[in-house]
Simulated scan of single mutants.
Amino acid sequence: MTLTSCEFESNQSQSQQQRISLLYVCLGCWILHKCLSISTWPWIGFDRFYSYCIVAASAGVMYDWVLTFEQEVELIWRQRWSPITVLFLSVRYLGISYAVASMFMYVPTVPTTDTVSFILVILMNWIDIVANALLGVIMLIRLYAMYGRSRKVLIPLAVFLVAGNMFIGVAVATTIAMRDFSQEELILSGTHQCTGHFNGYYLHLDSVSWIFGTSWEVIALFLAVWIAVLHFCELRQRSGDGIMNDCFTVLIKTHLVYFASVVGVSCLGLGDNFSKALVNEYSLGTQIYQGLFVMFRFVQMFVLGPRLVLGVREYHAKLLNDSNTATGMTSIAFQEPVHISTRSSV
């Protein structure tokens, strides 16, 4: 069968049109890919910077655990167990779990499925809630001890603390039950990005919970500073400068630094929720702010929190080993009653 010249030219023209159409399709796909790359690059850059901050904060938590593990064994594991012991161990190892989960969640080179991402979000939210509640109880016990076991201080603070944590827990449980957020994994430019979508209801509850928490923490800081000032005035009247300076050092190391850090991190959280300057989440200023916020929050919850308990235990152990100083120092009533074993080298 032979083709006429007209049929041959027609087939050649159709073949040329198909090649041109294919070229246009390829060109369109290339342009679309470039446009998507340009539009998603700020997102990728933000997630990458945020993941660096998460890794740095998580490494800090692990490093502090290694540094203080010997103290933990001596002052926690080898002593008689008490409620403070349970609180310390819970916060310490919830913090390590939170650090590991955060790296799985936010490091873009770690692949996760949509289901795993959803589970990690729920796990991290509940660890955050429980750890904050436990740290609040530790602060409450410290204030109760500093005020000489006064129920007038204990009951109002306990009611405020329980009410605030119940609100936060109910809000998160409601959000999860109503599926008011979604979590999925995207692969963009070779990186694994976990994306979360929250509606206004969840964001509103989150803002209210920050206000509750910050209010309680400001009150706790005020009470801690107030009782410290009263004790310093009392010690100055009846004691020497040596005990006064020693007492001030103990107080700063064990209490006021932690209480102030809690308030500082809460203020950063309020700024993250309400500041209009942070609306553009891809700007350099917003990235630095949120990166510092997450690192400070890790340090406050999972480094300074456990160190508060260790510092109080260490101070009490030194008092038992130095009976001369103990007479002047015990008036501050910083320590819950615990048993510190004494060992002889003989």
Rank of each mutant, 00 (worst) to 15 (best):
I227C: 04
L230D: 11
E234W: 13
L235I: 10
L235Q: 13
L235E: 07
R236E: 11
Q237H: 03
S239F: 08
G240P: 02
D241H: 00
G242Q: 05
G242E: 07
I243P: 00
M244F: 13
M244Y: 11
N245G: 00
N245Y: 05
D246P: 00
C247H: 08
F248V: 11
T249F: 08
T249Y: 13
V250W: 11
I252W: 12
T254G: 05
H255P: 02
L256H: 00
V257F: 12
V257E: 03
V257H: 06
V257G: 06
Y258I: 09
Y258W: 15
F259V: 02
A260S: 14
S261F: 05
S261N: 08
S261Q: 08
S261G: 11
S261A: 15
V262C: 03
V263F: 10
G264Q: 06
G264A: 12
G264I: 02
V265F: 11
S266D: 08
C267G: 01
L270E: 07
L270I: 09
L270K: 00
L270F: 00
G271K: 03
D272M: 10
N273H: 08
F274Y: 01
S275D: 11
K276P: 05
L278E: 04
V279L: 14
N280C: 14
N280D: 15
E281G: 13
E281R: 13
S283D: 07
T286R: 12
T286S: 15
I288S: 13
I288V: 15
